[in-house]
Design a binder for these strands. Structure first.
Lengths: 344, 344
DNA sequence: ACCTTATTCCAAAACGTTTTGGATGTCAAT
DNA sequence: ATTGACATCCAAAACGTTTTGGAATAAGGT
């Protein structure tokens, strides 16, 4: 049998109102009565019906997140972010509602459903696109949200990593190692961070007085397979690059694969670098030089911000920009400059 | 402004009932009327209030999962399972409610809250304990659930991997490679799979006519640090093992670390093996020999089963037992028997 | 003209909670 | 005895949906 406020009220000989208020801690109920109510509630194992509570109070204590069903396997970026968000949500007593969706139309529908069906108090948007319709939607209906990534008009609460700075650090590292022919595997053009990282790449080339070569730019879809194919293409050029930078680690791992398949020893014959520093990056063969985005931490901070937005507290810092850290590993010749000779 | 059934009803000059029934597809509403209602609903961007719907219909189309907040980083096992469950849930149009909790008392409270607050239709329980109170709870209140792992009394819908068979395959592999001194890093004793894998270890020793040595058994907490400490202890023995098997990959990775720190080359000086085949296992240095649990697939199947339980359809196979596959990599000397000489 | 059957609609109840706006009783001060 | 202040309680409304049990009308069969 379901135990509701009514059950307790009958048991205690009180009204539903009083039971509700006793449990909610209002001070217009006698302390002795309250204790009695609490005791009965405990004895009966009362658990409030959250659907009813949400319906009435319009607060769900739930945060929504939509994760794209990209590949067969889980996207390490999202898993990492998810665990950061989940961790911090637990801290505040919030739960997480996830909807896994095919990217595109369905994904947008999922957002619409989430925000309009009043099942969540706020939502975290990750991997922002240019002119992101999800953000347009959330702003239009004024639903609390925090984004990981800033869109064209970044005038909403967000947290982001300075991709330009990160990519620039990486380019300087490669130039210092003697590389003159550096290729870039781009992520899809509709993602905001692609443009930013590309800018870092361009700036890095300019600083070193290197030309920007169109044939050294290939776009792929963030996946390992995509990265592998892109790298194969680059390595098959008549004048192949000595270093390949990928816009995320997963594609960089694909590039490692492509290089190995071609009989090249990464770190000696060719340099490969990624972006993100997913957990796997430290364990690839050879370990991957990359730019560390503290994704887990970002998840936690994004949730902190979101809670404030939900509570309508002012954000002391509505636009957070984190400077990422370059992590040098063996895939670009290792930490010691001695490993830096490149076959040209 | 919130658009509800009432809004549509007014707009269409109909009752709330008719609008509700029109949208729900009942056949006691005129087709022309239905089309009109649908058009208005679409134009107004109607989204049903799910809290209200759940309250009334007692169906939430949501699956619950509690994930333990163990270490700072995310547990790859859970992430993998989560993505399998999430993927399949999306297939059925279900969402996922996650609650991240400290293991122990709080975790049980989270389960209690989830099931009693009628916010979810069913729950997936992972990493089952002996005499698992979560399962006791779920059975007591007769709440739909499917477990990954079987408890003492496995008389409930579950899916499991045959840990005994897996461990036995691994032991045979090591024995065949010439190992006579094989140690085991145990997972916590309250986990069911610990006992099963231990049994496989014991049986493996017996088959090879090897003694069961107490000093070759160390328990650790599933974490990388725990595995590292356990391996350090084993390697410091006066008569150290030539092979170390860990009850999961994460601990095995810790063991790799410990061996490396001691100056041993894993795969030549010592063999290390794990259990799970998490994505990382293929990328460790050297790549880890392990027993593959198809966690993602298991997540999907578990969800399939759960949906059936929720719909009160009979399960054609309430207890699924999957035979895992041995994955031989370099950490035990590689695929070729030539790599199998061990320093004894 | 009358009964039956189908079709199309709806009022009202119910789900379990929170909140509003008092009601009731007590006690001290006038 | 009346007033005001306070402490303690509660009836009823509201949240937005689904479902029950008809009502109203039209059509068809005698």
């Amino acid at each position: 049998m379901k135990v509701t406020l009514k059950t307790i009220a009958q048991e205690a000989g009180l009204s539903i109102t009083t039971v509700s208020r006793a449990l909610a801690g209002y001070d217009d109920v006698n302390e002795a009565t309250r204790q009695r109510v609490i005791a009965i509630a405990k004895r009966l194992g009362y658990q409030p019906n959250l659907a009813a509570r949400h319906l009435r109070s319009k607060q769900t204590h739930t945060i929504g997140m939509v994760i794209p069903l990209t590949s067969y396997y889980s996207d390490p970026f999202f898993m990492e972010l998810l665990s950061g968000v989940g961790r911090q949500a637990a801290e505040y007593g919030y739960d997480l509602l996830l909807s896994a969706q095919q990217p595109g139309e369905e994904e947008l529908i999922a957002y619409r459903r989430m925000v309009a069906s009043s099942r969540i108090d706020g939502v975290i948007v990750a991997r922002v696109w240019k002119d992101d319709p999800r953000i347009a939607l959330l702003r239009e209906v004024q639903h609390p949200f925090v984004a990981f990534g800033r869109s064209n008009d970044g005038n909403y609460p967000h947290i982001d990593v300075d991709g330009l700075s990160g990519m620039l650090q990486l380019m300087r590292h490669l130039v210092e190692r003697g590389h003159r022919r550096i290729a870039l595997i781009l992520s899809p053009a509709n993602l905001v961070f692609t443009a930013v990282r590309y800018q870092g790449y361009v700036q890095g080339l300019a600083e070193a007085g290197l030309p920007l070569r169109q044939d050294y730019l290939v776009e792929a879809d963030l996946s390992q397979e995509g990265g592998c194919a892109a790298a194969q293409h680059l390595l098959a050029l008549p004048d192949p690059p000595t270093a390949i930078v990928a816009c995320n680690d997963t594609m960089a791992i694909g590039a490692l694969e492509a290089a190995r398949a071609r009989g090249l020893k990464v770190g000696r014959d060719i340099a490969v670098a990624g972006f993100d520093d997913i957990p796997l990056a430290a364990y690839t063969d050879p370990p991957l030089t990359t730019v560390r985005q503290p994704i887990y931490e970002i998840g936690r901070r994004a949730l902190d911000m979101l809670i404030r937005v939900i509570r309508r507290e002012p954000l002391q810092e509505p636009h957070v920009l984190i400077t990422p850290e370059l992590i040098v590993r063996q895939s670009t010749g290792g930490a010691s400059p001695a490993g830096g000779q490149v076959r040209v």
